[in-house]
Design a protein around this nucleic acid. Sequence first.
DNA 1: AGCGGTTGTCGAATCGATTCGACGATGCAG
DNA 2: CTGCATCGTCGAATCGATTCGACAACCGCT
Lengths: 347, 347
Amino acid sequence: MATIKDVARAAGVAPSTVSYVLSGSRKISADTRTAVQAAVEELGYHPNAGARSLRSTRTDVLALALPLSGHGYLPVGGRFMYGLSEAAGRHGYLVLLVTPPGEDDRGAGLERAARGRFADAAVLMGVEMEDPRVAAMRSLDFPVALMGHPDDESAAPWCDLDWEESVVSSVRALREAGHRRMLYLATVEEDVGSGRTYSVRGIRGAERAAAESGVAVDVCHSSDDPVELYRRLDARFDSDAPPTALAVQHPPAIPGILRHLAARGIEVPRDVSLVAIGNFPEDLGGLDVTRIELPVEQMSAAATRLAVEAIARVGDPGPFDDGDGGRAPHTLIPPRLIRGATVAPAP
Amino acid sequence: MATIKDVARAAGVAPSTVSYVLSGSRKISADTRTAVQAAVEELGYHPNAGARSLRSTRTDVLALALPLSGHGYLPVGGRFMYGLSEAAGRHGYLVLLVTPPGEDDRGAGLERAARGRFADAAVLMGVEMEDPRVAAMRSLDFPVALMGHPDDESAAPWCDLDWEESVVSSVRALREAGHRRMLYLATVEEDVGSGRTYSVRGIRGAERAAAESGVAVDVCHSSDDPVELYRRLDARFDSDAPPTALAVQHPPAIPGILRHLAARGIEVPRDVSLVAIGNFPEDLGGLDVTRIELPVEQMSAAATRLAVEAIARVGDPGPFDDGDGGRAPHTLIPPRLIRGATVAPAP
DNA sequence: AGCGGTTGTCGAATCGATTCGACGATGCAG
DNA sequence: CTGCATCGTCGAATCGATTCGACAACCGCT
């Protein structure tokens, strides 16, 4: 593999000159520049990542810390991984996946990545309200960006869809259609239990929506186990006052829910209205679901930007220099309700 | 951040001794070993990745090259990324995502990763029959493992689900149920056009199945555009001799297809039987689909193993030393047909 | 002609770990 | 008591790039 010396020899200059041409950090004459560029091209030279990072302490790599648990998050996760990899690429970064190695050592892989300087910053997925990874990275002075919105807004730069507002506006839409008894199907219990911020905020949204609109919003947790999920749904629909509308924050369950309800003779939107919260633009056989889509690209781009900016800030006085009342830089994405065909007037 | 010198000082030994303790490559007395380990623990020492890789030419990183194109592959891709990250972790490797930067420079990111020694090997996803990345990596003598099964079995180590046999056994199952006119819904045109091995092999399977069983297997490509997809389906179901069975190798489309057919009054399995090829264990409202599942974990584990073995082989005489007629090491996973409730006897 | 100021390039130190050869200490045999 | 392994540790070279200070060459000005 060609080294900078090989390039220097081929171009008839010193290695340092090659470096300056490549980094552009010193003025170089047009002649030598073209000579060096030709040699680089000719030899297919790419700087050795290890050597470069050893000397410059920059790796051009972002660590992407996968959620601490919850395989239910998996189909979503893939989109974010892809989106982040693309966004990072646009900033000149590669993405290193860091899987939590086991339940017992939460964040150890991440710590290795940070302490071992595998990356310049970390993007944390599936952030929890009291996320141990945030504290760990802070104590290492390692730049992070969170995908998720913890209560402590000074903890670290973060970005998120406004889940609370998502649920509120979903409930509002259903209320405007005349619905007075609705079921909010929250994320799976595992996510709620571990304090995933999207779960917690979704539930808060349901509570706020109920309070402010005066309608009954029954909060029920979803489940990755379909049998259990349908049992819970059946319990509601078998009751004396069954819901006339459904707000679902667990998108992968929607096709199954639709089929299950249909098997009971319940048609959407004829018998029950539906809003899907945080799903993907996926087709359901021509059924145009009223929904709030998860802005994966936007969030990936935002997280990447926050991470890159945090890298530029290392060594700065703490915690954040802006005058935003101690809040960290952030991007809160307002929900956009897309009116489809699954909300009908209440009977 | 603590360096090996800090550890050495804290333990009262030379840096080289620390290195030997950590690598275990020389005999060290029990006393010094414990002293060093204590110092490592105390300081939270992790070796600097750059320095280590510069000296040892090992990065402990696998590059995961994402498919060259095709966002339809995305939901699948997420599982593989996750699976690979876990499998790699078990071998002590981290995973670096390499997104193809643009349509025009196919594989450039990968080349940077390889030439720049960002990784020790690459796992290629969404392999195509004539995949430019394979040749590129071979010319660099860079170890690879393919997820996909190209015709040239000597090209590189590979692993794959046996897609051809998957389609054959699906057709066989439908034939045994008495079906004589079936529709094979292949992968999306984009995948077929670019020569994704799973697409090509699926179609070959359909052709072979037709020939060997004597039934008519109508091959139709799926589409990521639902309108177009339903147009194609409708054309078949509106014909004089509509299919009585469906074999679908495009899993994300299945919920939509089921709803679309239902809207036309076609029920599964009452009016048409269905086999899903290469899907995930996902719930469809209690509908137990007859299917061949995509063994993501198995494939991820296999690809990782092949990559790790290929790393150990660098510098060996070429191409492969085994006596397997020039075939590269590989793992071909036989399909397992899971009999669900969507195949009924033909009318 | 001499001087100060640019401009462009070079040499050398440096980052932190690995690894080889060397070397002192200890044990055992003659 | 000497000679020779054996064992455990150390020192120094090395990997490939970055970056700072130095400096030669050339400019224009007095």
